[in-house]
Amino acid sequence: MTVDHEGRGTTLAGHDQAPGSGGRRRANGALEAEILTLLHATRRALTPGEVTERLTAPLAHTTVATTLARLHARGVLDRAPQGRSYVYAPVADESGMTARHMHQVMEGGNDRASVLTHFVDELSDDDEDLLRRLLGNDG
């Protein structure tokens, strides 16, 4: 492990680690989840630098910028030019993001009817009643 000019611990391969973490890396998706939570809570578009400043663990600006670019490429974030950088914002609120994820999971299945059947079978009574009301089928 090396220490960069800002006192952050990094591996020789350049993977960011929190100081004192003993070389442990974040779990897959943990940084993406933290960034999305931060952007939803902020309720405005942020630059990679602003995101970096607000994260719980210090990370290299390039790591955050790369993660933001990947989320944008996957259609999770919108981005707009601002000066020499971009600002990033979620394409949907948290419930919209969850619904989008559910739709992506459905698209990945081979038997939609079976997937939906299993999904509905596992709903709580309250959620099943809510689904019936949303579908306009109260009885």
Rank of each mutant, 00 (worst) to 15 (best):
A92N: 02
A65H: 12
M106F: 07
G75V: 08
S95L: 14
L123W: 05
G83W: 04
S114R: 13
Y86A: 12
P81E: 06
S124F: 08
A99P: 00
A99E: 10
F119S: 11
G83I: 04
L123T: 04
Q82T: 12
R74I: 04
D121K: 10
H72F: 06
T67W: 00
A92H: 10
V76S: 05
R79L: 07
L123A: 08
Q104K: 01
E94C: 00
D126W: 05
P81C: 00
T98F: 05
G108A: 15
T67P: 01
Y86K: 10
D121T: 04
G109S: 07
T63F: 03
V87K: 08
Y88H: 15
F119T: 15
L123G: 10
N110F: 06
D126T: 14
S124H: 10
M97T: 06
V115L: 15
Y86T: 03
T63W: 01
G83D: 04
A92Q: 07
T98Q: 07
R84N: 09
G83F: 05
H61V: 04
D111P: 00
V115C: 05
R112T: 13
S85Q: 14
H103A: 14
H118M: 12
V120T: 13
T117M: 04
H118A: 14
R112M: 15
G75R: 10
Y88S: 05
Q104G: 00
Q104I: 00
L123V: 07
G96V: 00
D93M: 08
V87Q: 09
A73E: 15
Q82F: 12
S124Q: 09
F119D: 04
S124D: 12
S124E: 12
A69M: 03
H118E: 13
E107I: 01
D78L: 14
H118I: 06
H72W: 13
A60T: 13
Q104D: 12
M106V: 12
E122N: 15
H101F: 11
L71D: 04
V115Y: 11
L116R: 09
M102I: 10
Y86L: 05
R74A: 15
H103T: 14
S114E: 14
Y88R: 05
R84W: 02
R84V: 01
E94Y: 00
T63S: 14
T67K: 05
A80L: 14
L77P: 07
H118K: 12
M97V: 01
D125C: 05
E122A: 15
L123C: 01
R70E: 13
R79D: 03
R112S: 09
L116T: 03
M106D: 02
A99C: 02
H103P: 00
V115S: 07
A89I: 01
L116F: 09
T117F: 08
S114G: 15
D125I: 08
A65Q: 10
H72M: 02
R74P: 01
R79T: 03
H72G: 03
R79C: 09
V76W: 11
R100V: 01
D93H: 10
D111Q: 07
A60V: 07
A99Y: 04
V87M: 05
T62P: 00
L71S: 02
T67V: 08
G96C: 07
D93L: 01
R112A: 12
S95I: 09
S95Q: 13
M102E: 10
D93G: 14
G83Q: 02
